[in-house]
Simulated scan of single mutants.
Amino acid sequence: MAQRFDLPEIIPVFPLPGALLLPRARLPLHLFEPRYLAMLEDVLKTRERLIGMVQPNPAPGRDGCTGLHRIGCVGRVTQFSETEDGRYMITLTGLSRFRMTEEVEGFTPYRRVRVCWDSFDRDMGPTETDPGFDRDGFMNLLSRYFNARALETDWESLEQADDELLINSLSMLLGFEPEEKQALLEAPSLATRRETLVMLLEYALRGGDNEDIVQ
Rank of each mutant, 00 (worst) to 15 (best):
Q3T: 12
R4K: 14
R4P: 02
F5S: 15
L7F: 12
L7P: 10
F14E: 00
L16G: 04
L16Y: 01
L20C: 01
L21I: 02
L21P: 10
L22T: 08
R24W: 02
L29I: 06
L31E: 02
E33L: 04
P34D: 06
Y36M: 07
E41R: 14
D42W: 00
D42L: 00
D42S: 07
V43L: 06
L44D: 02
I51L: 03
I51A: 01
V54S: 08
P56G: 11
P56N: 06
A59K: 11
P60C: 03
P60M: 01
P60L: 01
P60H: 05
G61I: 13
C65E: 05
T66N: 15
C73G: 08
V74S: 14
R76Q: 14
R76K: 14
V77S: 00
S81M: 05
E84P: 07
R87D: 11
T91V: 15
S96I: 04
S96L: 03
R97V: 07
F98I: 08
R99P: 07
M100N: 04
M100Y: 02
F107I: 15
F107M: 15
Y110I: 07
V113Q: 05
V115F: 00
S119T: 15
F120P: 12
F120H: 04
D121S: 13
D121E: 15
T127R: 15
T127M: 11
T127Q: 13
E128Y: 03
E128D: 11
P131N: 02
D134R: 12
R135K: 07
D136Y: 01
G137Y: 01
F138A: 11
M139Y: 09
N140T: 15
S143Q: 13
A150L: 15
A150N: 15
S157Q: 05
E159R: 12
D162R: 05
E164G: 12
N168Y: 10
L173N: 15
F176W: 08
F176S: 10
E179A: 14
K181D: 03
K181C: 09
A183F: 05
A183L: 13
A183T: 14
E186C: 14
A187F: 04
P188W: 01
A191E: 12
V198I: 13
V198W: 01
V198K: 13
L200V: 04
L200P: 09
Y203G: 08
L205V: 05
L205K: 06
N210A: 11
E211H: 14
V214K: 06
Q215S: 10
